[in-house]
C-alpha cells in the first residue's frame, strides 16, 4: 500500500478511488508489461481507445536519453480537454499533464528515458474517453538517475529560471515556444532531492488562463515547451512554478500579424 501511494505520488496523480479493471481495457498493441498498471491508474473508469488520430511524433533514435524530444499533435481529435505524455517503464512515468484551456491539443517537449520503453500520448475528450497512441523507443539507461549537466558543472543556481521564448503566427493561431533553465532533479540521484518545475501556465491579456501544463521530474533538464494557442493576443504572461514554490514569470509579445 505504501509503495502504491508512493508510485501514485511519483506519477503526480491522486490514486483513483476505484480503478478500472483490466478486462475493460483494450489489449495494448505495444505489448507493454506496464500497460494495465498505468492505464488503470491514469484512466480510472473512463473508456480507453487506441486512436491513430493522436499524432505522437518521436525521433527514431534516443540519441540522448536525458533529452528525448516528444511531440503530440492531437488536433484531429475534437474537444480535447487533457493531454498526457508518459513512458511506461520510466521510474517517473507521467511527464506531462496538459490542459489546453484555450489552446489546441498540441504540445512538444523533451523528456528523460531510463531504459527501452513505450512512449505514449493520451488525450481525453469532453465525453471522458481517452484516446491513446504510443511507440517503443530503445534507449540507454540512466536518463532519470544520472545527475543533470548543470549539477555536474555546478552552475544551476546561476541560471535558475532564466527564460527564452518567442511567439509565431500560425494561421489564425499562435505558436509559443519557451525554454526555462531548471535542473529538474528527479530525486533518484544520490544526495540530490527531487526538485522540478511543477506547473507552467500561459495567461492572455485579460489574465485568463489559456494553457495549464503540469510537469514532473521526467521532463528533461532546462525544459522546453512548444504550445499552440487559439487566436492571437498582443502579449502573453507565462508563469512557471517549481516544487520549492518559486515562481518564474515572463511576458512574451504576441506574434506580429
Amino acid at each position: 500500500m505504501k509503495r502504491l501511494a508512493l508510485l501514485s505520488a511519483l506519477m503526480g496523480q491522486v490514486a483513483p478511488a476505484r480503478a478500472a479493471t483490466a478486462t475493460d481495457l483494450p489489449t495494448d498493441p505495444l505489448g507493454s508489461p506496464m500497460w494495465t498498471y498505468h492505464a488503470e491508474r491514469l484512466f480510472a473508469d473512463a473508456r480507453v481507445v487506441f486512436d491513430a488520430q493522436v499524432g505522437l511524433a518521436i525521433p527514431g533514435i534516443a540519441e540522448n536519453q536525458r533529452v528525448f524530444p516528444v511531440m503530440v499533435d492531437a488536433r484531429a481529435v475534437p474537444d480535447v480537454t487533457r493531454l498526457l505524455i508518459f513512458a511506461d517503464l520510466n521510474p517517473i512515468p507521467l511527464a506531462i499533464d496538459y490542459r489546453p484551456l484555450a489552446a489546441r491539443a498540441f504540445l512538444a517537449t523533451r523528456i528523460k528515458l531510463d531504459q527501452r520503453t513505450p512512449v505514449r500520448a493520451a488525450v481525453q475528450t469532453r465525453d471522458g474517453t481517452w484516446h491513446v497512441a504510443g511507440q517503443w523507443i530503445d534507449a540507454a539507461g540512466g536518463g532519470c538517475s544520472a545527475p543533470p549537466v548543470s549539477r555536474v558543472k555546478g552552475d544551476w543556481a546561476e541560471h535558475l529560471g532564466d527564460m527564452r521564448g518567442r511567439t509565431w503566427a500560425e494561421g489564425e493561431e499562435t505558436r509559443l515556444r519557451l525554454t526555462l533553465r531548471h535542473p529538474m532533479d528527479t530525486g533518484l540521484v544520490e544526495n540530490i532531492p527531487a526538485y522540478n518545475l511543477e506547473t507552467l501556465r500561459v495567461l492572455g491579456e485579460d489574465g485568463r488562463e489559456q494553457a495549464h501544463v503540469t510537469v514532473s521530474g521526467a521532463v528533461a533538464e532546462d525544459p522546453t515547451f512548444t504550445l499552440l494557442l487559439a487566436g492571437r493576443e498582443a502579449r502573453y504572461r507565462v508563469i512557471a512554478r517549481d516544487t520549492s514554490g518559486r515562481e518564474f514569470e515572463a511576458l512574451i509579445a504576441g506574434p506580429t500579424p
Binding site: 527564452r164 521564448g165 518567442r166 525554454t179 532546462d222 515572463a250 511576458l251
Partner: peptide, 17 residues
C-alpha cells in the same frame, strides 16, 4: 544532429525574456 545541436542554437537564437 538535432539532439546534439538544437539546445545550443535555441540558447543562441531565442530571445531572452
Amino acid at each position: 544532429s538535432v539532439s546534439h545541436l538544437y539546445p545550443g542554437l535555441e540558447a543562441e537564437l531565442l530571445p531572452a525574456l
